[in-house]
């Protein structure tokens, strides 16, 4: 068996809010496209286990990209004097620009945490672009129980503090190596990036009023939530699923907020099940 993994990485430049963004993306597999969105303060590496899973990639093309400021996607020109604060508008525009640039035909959108939040936003705002939504650790809204300004200050390491904070959301069932691989991404995130992501995640409640308009007959919505997630609790996910007519929900008893990264073996049956739920009636695609 070759030690070389099937994942390949490339770059694409798209335009978001009138300026170019050089985006790093990875992909593996062939078949129905699944666009994967990472959490706040992290990057595409969170999806590496599923992208290396032959059972998943035998009939799905998984694509994940690093949001600008994250992973190997650079921030835009002028970032050095800009306060990074992610907005729903910029996030939606970035996802749509990537779908268009890669020529993806009605992909499934799979997002975790803030990626799950934006997946539900897109289910409400641009349903015609996608054929299904897997919203992981996703809910309508939760205000922060912490001060997001803790994570960008000159006298302490934002990445290390952020990692120590989010470790609260990792299940004790997670294998130790994957717990620390998951935390490493937070430790290595750029200054102020986690804070800027959290600004979107903890302050923008615009999804609440839009959930009722999501049409799951056109594109299914399946929500997955880990019992050890303190940030998006099963209660938050249940409330959100209940507000979307036709949405389905699975509670993952032994998982936390980063299931695909923290506990790949525990998560894969839930993700495989989610993919089977993304079958869309042919008439809905017309």
């Amino acid at each position: 068996m070759s030690a070389i993994e099937p994942i390949t990485g490339r770059y694409v430049t798209v335009e978001v809010e009138g300026a170019p963004r050089r985006i790093y993306f990875e992909e593996a597999g062939a078949g129905r496209p699944v666009l994967c969105l990472h959490t706040a303060g992290a990057d595409t590496r969170q999806w590496r286990h599923l992208m290396n899973d032959a059972e998943v990639t035998k009939d799905h093309r998984l694509i994940a990209f690093d949001m600008p400021w994250h992973g190997k996607s650079l921030p835009p020109e002028g970032f050095e004097t800009e306060e990074y604060l992610l907005t729903t508008e910029a996030y939606v525009a970035t996802v749509l620009a990537v779908v268009e640039a890669l020529g993806l035909d009605r992909p499934i959108l799979a997002g975790c945490s803030m990626g799950g939040r934006i997946a539900l936003q897109l289910a409400a705002l641009r349903p015609e672009v996608f054929s299904g939504f897997i919203a992981i650790e996703a809910s309508d809204f939760q205000p922060a129980w912490y001060d997001i300004d803790w994570f960008h200050r000159p006298d302490a390491h934002g990445g290390e503090m952020g990692a120590a904070l989010v470790s609260a959301n990792i299940s004790p069932y997670a294998p130790k190596a994957e717990r620390w691989n998951t935390l490493w991404m937070f430790m290595a995130s750029g200054p102020g990036v986690f804070r800027g992501d959290l600004s979107f995640y903890t302050r923008d409640d615009s999804l609440i009023g839009r959930l009722g308009r999501i049409d799951t007959a056109r594109a299914p919505v399946h929500i997955l939530v880990g019992a050890y997630d303190l940030t998006c609790t099963p209660e938050d996910a249940r409330r959100t699923a209940a507000a979307i007519p036709g949405a389905t929900l699975a509670v993952m008893e032994e998982l936390g907020h980063f299931p695909m990264s923290e506990h790949p073996e525990g998560f894969r049956p839930f993700f495989l099940d989610a993919l089977t739920r993304m079958r869309v009636p042919a008439e809905a695609l017309k």
């Binding site: 129980w145 912490y146 609260a168 299940s171 004790p172 303190l230």
Partner: peptide
């Protein structure tokens, strides 16, 4: 405990 129940697994969990 090695694998506490949800919420008991972290000091901030105890708070929440």
């Amino acid at each position: 405990k090695p694998r506490p129940r949800p919420g008991f697994h972290d000091v901030f969990g105890l708070v929440t």
